[in-house]
Design a protein around this nucleic acid. Sequence first.
DNA 1: CGTGTGATTGACGCCTGTCAACGTCTGTGG
DNA 2: CCACAGACGTTGACAGGCGTCAATCACACG
Lengths: 235, 235
Amino acid sequence: MKYTDTIPSCLDCLKDNDSIFKYLIPEELKRIDDTKICNIYKRGNVVYHEGSRINGFYCIHSGIVKVFQTGIDGREQIVYFAKSGDIIGYRSVLSDELACTSAKVIEDSVLCFIPADVLVELIKGNGNFSLAMMKKTCKELGKANAYITDIAQKTVRERLAEVLLNLRETFGEDNEGVLKILLTREELANIVGTATESVIRLLSEFKNDHLINLNGRKITIIDHKKLEKISNAFS
Amino acid sequence: MKYTDTIPSCLDCLKDNDSIFKYLIPEELKRIDDTKICNIYKRGNVVYHEGSRINGFYCIHSGIVKVFQTGIDGREQIVYFAKSGDIIGYRSVLSDELACTSAKVIEDSVLCFIPADVLVELIKGNGNFSLAMMKKTCKELGKANAYITDIAQKTVRERLAEVLLNLRETFGEDNEGVLKILLTREELANIVGTATESVIRLLSEFKNDHLINLNGRKITIIDHKKLEKISNAFS
DNA sequence: CGTGTGATTGACGCCTGTCAACGTCTGTGG
DNA sequence: CCACAGACGTTGACAGGCGTCAATCACACG
């Protein structure tokens, strides 16, 4: 599965994606280019597993990866989606803990693995990069806190509406209006934090109310306004 | 409310508390000592308010502060408790966003305010401190993710048991076994993410099953083992 | 064509939120 | 010293959102 064909250079990658690495100086970027290991992953492949020790982190060159925790009787709770330009696994590296999440590929991906000590080195050495990483982590923490409040106070219906809007915001839609991320009903349920059947029922309710269109896993948002009202957004 | 009497020196504070500032060199610590502003806060006082811009962060010298988000119709969701040695408000400073939480004093406190630019300066200048801050934030992020999973998958009963155990872990108990944090039933509900009445009902259930003792706001954990079993801990 | 995975629908019941009434305690002011 | 207001705690009744179980359908794939 080694990806020796055309290893993406970080410099090229930076042009396309808004990555955290833009805060690095050329020599530092070269250090990453030299140490990274790139691989192709297919949908369903596991990038890393909860409870394992990770000695590095991954940068998403292309594709989509879901990051989730495994809860009671193996039910997944998705806490994050990573797309091109994002990095995953750095949390465990920096907190010096075992991975508290698993990562699995949703859409065929090219991922670059970068050793832990390179990251530590960069944070210690480059104040601007360090600050940017802090900022990134703090923003994620803010989002996590907001989601705790959401999930604790909103109904499943409200949360589903919100999740749909978030997905559009994050992944956009093609020129037909179809969300550029395909998820199973179960995966949707694992974001919202509910049962698969509930998602199915609510989705067809939304469809009947002409808020969305459904075509298999393809979801089209029709009435953005009403969805927002349902989601009861207070942020 | 200015606390001019006996301003706690950071050096003394470090001896008692395990604070993040232990990674600073003496000159840096002095910089904080020189710029900080210390105040006394009484129970109920608001430290900072959601949506406001904070131009610094707070270090808890003594007391307890709850950090929460305000959700639908003003209901609070508590996301963090800060006690002596902890810092709060740094998230908003570093993410350069408005405060996404409010902080309110639970137990009379002495808080030291430290300007934002001092923090940024330290992170940029001291790699070890920077790394420690990253580590701290990453750990918090891990906890937040774990709580998302919890709240999404566990029942109220399980979560309440877990919260009680967490409180004991964090704040300890006096020699009578009473938890060293006093919360109203509503505050407990705002941690668990449920209605006040549910907390009351479950608490008296726990009491009847001889898992805990209740005396007003004083809670004593009797049967740690069974509570753990109820909490369904999978971590 | 059998097998397996995912999607859908219906039935059922419990957990839990909401509403309402009442009890308890503390502090304040007359 | 007592009355009263207000915050907090408790209990009961009730309904409905949502999880669970089970059966069936749809579709892809070897």
